[in-house]
Write a protein that binds this DNA or RNA. Structure first.
Lengths: 156, 156
DNA sequence: TTGCTGTTGCGAAGGGGTTGCAGGAAGGCG
DNA sequence: CGCCTTCCTGCAACCCCTTCGCAACAGCAA
């Protein structure tokens, strides 16, 4: 609660807002709301979860608006998405990489649906192998790997 | 066209039919139709493609039936599916593995949507690594990897 | 051949996401 | 400061894919 570094969420929102403005987009409350929610979010919320979260603080905001806002933010590279076995999850792009595309790799538990982040280089070996043998340019961050997390593997 | 090895498609259909019968399921024309289509299919058709293909030879077959048939075949382990970035693809399980679960790994080109098969062990290293570091039990065959195939990587 | 029971076809409903349109607000400009 | 243009939002209808309920049909065993 000191002066510097105060409220990282607000700082993130301002950063994104500035980015929007620079690219000729208008700053509206719904957009702030979505960015704010993403900045606060832990993990990788789906559109549905984002909308629910937004609705708690800014009631009346329409689901359509969430979709369109995410689309706009994605075009700017501010937001990244991952395809899960069911649905798509969104999260703010790594601030440091600001458009450089330093995403991380994701894995999703098919039982509890939780998403975990993996070190970025974990698929490097496979990527090289695929490039050499198949000429396939793997994009490791676009789709989540599937499996069972520690907890679910133990229980189930 | 000799006596032995004649029409591998028919042979596959008969094998699956026998499997169905063994498990107390009835042999119907729609089921033969779906299996036949899958046996003929190159690649990894979606429900839509399967239905279209079936409709050409057995007009009047309802889409619902395709879904239900695939579901039945999947329960028997005769059919496997992969989640793609958009949609789900079905294919006959590896005959040799007949229920043993020896699936292969898939990768999908995000540009041309083609699916390519990869050697089963290509993710073994990653699987071991994830198991050790995260306790995550990777299931390599359940979701397709994403990237660009040789052709699209060159063109685009 | 007869009868039981699993399957099919159909219509309708459900869920998720997208699109078109008219009103409303952001922000540039006078 | 206030107007005006343009973009954005809210709403509702729509579309696509999948599943469900029900009545009729057809395997297959006896």
């Amino acid at each position: 609660m000191s002066t510097r570094g105060q409220d990282p969420v607000a700082a993130t929102v301002e950063r994104v807002v500035a980015h929007l403005r620079e690219h000729g987009h208008r700053i509206t409350m719904p957009r702030r709301a979505v960015v704010d929610t993403l900045a606060r979010a832990e993990g990788h919320p789906t559109v549905e979860q984002i909308a629910a979260d937004v609705a708690e603080r800014w009631p009346g905001m329409h689901l359509t608006t969430v979709y369109r806002t995410l689309e706009t933010l994605a075009e700017l590279g501010v937001v990244t998405h991952v395809h899960l076995a069911a649905g798509t999850a969104y999260h703010l792009a790594d601030p440091a990489s600001a458009g450089a595309g330093t995403h991380h790799v994701h894995a999703q538990c098919r039982s509890c649906r939780r998403v975990i982040d993996l070190p970025d280089g974990i698929l490097d070996g496979v990527r090289r192998e695929l490039a050499a043998s198949e000429g396939f340019a793997l994009e490791p961050h676009h789709v989540a790997l599937s499996g069972l997390c520690r907890g679910c593997a133990a229980t189930g």
